[in-house]
Computed example of a mutant assay.
Amino acid sequence: MTDGRPCKVCNFTRQKSYGVIVPSLDDLKKKGCEFLGVSPSAPVTVVLEGDGTIVEDQAYFLCLPFNTKFMLLHDKETWAPARKIDGGTAWMARESVVLEADAVDSCIAEAPWWNLALQLKQDLTSIILMSEGDLQSLVEAPCSELASALGFQEKKAEELQETLQRVLDRREEERQSKELLQLYLKAVENEDRQQGATSPSSQDGAGDVDMPDGLEADSASEFMSRTLMVLKGKTSPETRLSTEDLQAVVSRGLEAMQQVLGWDAGRTAALLQACEAELSTRLQQIQAMQSISGTQQDDGKPRQGAGTATQGSS
């Protein structure tokens, strides 16, 4: 006799979902009807929950991977994407929902975050490739629907949206930092031009031209001038720098940074501590992303036997 296969079965509203272990397609129908409260004698159609593919052949059923989720349809029920049915209005669909192709296309157009969510479901690191508009649409997406699209628990989807908002905030900070840096560099350039016109020594390269504090040390140490500008010109500069720049600052140590910046030991030490704390925070964010990714895999594991009914959030 064929060994049992772990599967999941849900009703067409996805409000009820159970884990079952069955050896055949017929047994899936029988157990599914039992758990979902459908009469065993009622004709039902088995479809794949993900895309609505009808499953009628036992051989095809056996070829599907373990933990595949099926939907049982009976009477006038029809398959619909998870995003189409809201938990508060799903009951209205029982009598008359017929999803035409143009209606589905319209829904997709109204929810541009859906395809982005599918990208994240495949690979969370695709976040770094998304535009700010893409990230904003994911942040503004209904949390319960985003959780359904990603296969996450709603709490994990909320944590993801918080992470995306932090990414947006960081990009805005970086943009503002670059704009201020450009203004500062122009001011320095104008000041140097004025000093060059009034100081004879500037023409022979004697090295005694008044330059912005720290720029000569920058040249000597091959330290990036833009990093120095941010460090010396902004409050909480550690939040403005890239991770690579933060690592460069921290790795130089107290004495080297004190010489580069021209600051006293106490002020330089405080800056280094802030940079180290920011690096630690970013590492925690990366670990959080990895945790979300791991949870995505854990959420797909079925329980043995008939599971407890879970209320769908779509």
Rank of each mutant, 00 (worst) to 15 (best):
L25T: 02
L129V: 12
S199R: 14
L183A: 08
S137Y: 05
I108A: 06
I286R: 15
C33W: 00
D169P: 05
S137V: 08
V20R: 02
Q182K: 13
W79L: 05
Q304Y: 11
A274I: 12
T45F: 05
V55M: 03
G52H: 02
S202L: 10
E77H: 00
C33Y: 00
D51K: 08
L48Y: 01
E56N: 13
Q161Y: 05
K76Q: 11
Q119K: 08
V38G: 00
D123A: 03
D169A: 06
P302I: 03
R170F: 10
A90L: 01
K29H: 03
Q296Y: 10
S280K: 13
P23F: 01
D134S: 04
T68L: 03
S126A: 10
R303E: 15
A309C: 13
K301H: 14
E145D: 06
L135H: 02
L279T: 05
A265C: 08
P81T: 04
Q273E: 11
V188G: 04
V209P: 01
M289D: 03
E145N: 07
K76I: 08
L185R: 15
E173F: 05
K186M: 12
E100D: 14
A270I: 10
T53W: 06
D210I: 14
E110M: 10
F70H: 00
F61D: 00
G294I: 06
K301I: 15
T198P: 05
G87C: 12
G87H: 13
W113F: 03
S219V: 15
V55E: 02
V167G: 02
R303S: 12
Q122F: 05
E238K: 05
P142A: 07
F152V: 06
P112L: 00
A220C: 14
L28C: 04
A117S: 03
R240N: 05
L228K: 07
E278D: 09
L261W: 00
K186A: 09
T227W: 06
S202C: 12
M229F: 11
R267W: 04
R303T: 15
T13E: 07
A220Q: 15
V139A: 04
M229A: 13
G133P: 10
L73I: 04
T268H: 03
D51C: 08
S201A: 13
L138A: 01
G133R: 14
S280H: 12
W113M: 00
R303L: 14
I21W: 15
E278G: 03
L72T: 00
N190W: 09
R226G: 08
L62H: 14
A265D: 12
D245V: 13
A270L: 08
Q203W: 11
R240G: 02
Q15W: 01
K31D: 02
K186V: 12
P65T: 04
A248C: 13
L124V: 04
E244C: 10
F35I: 11
Q297C: 10
M92C: 06
Y18H: 03
V98A: 10
Q259P: 07
V249P: 02
D75L: 01
E34H: 05
Q287C: 11
G262N: 11
D51N: 11
D299H: 09
A269R: 15
A80H: 09
E110T: 09
I54F: 12
P43K: 04
E77M: 01
A93N: 13
K301W: 14
E278P: 07
I108G: 04
L228H: 07
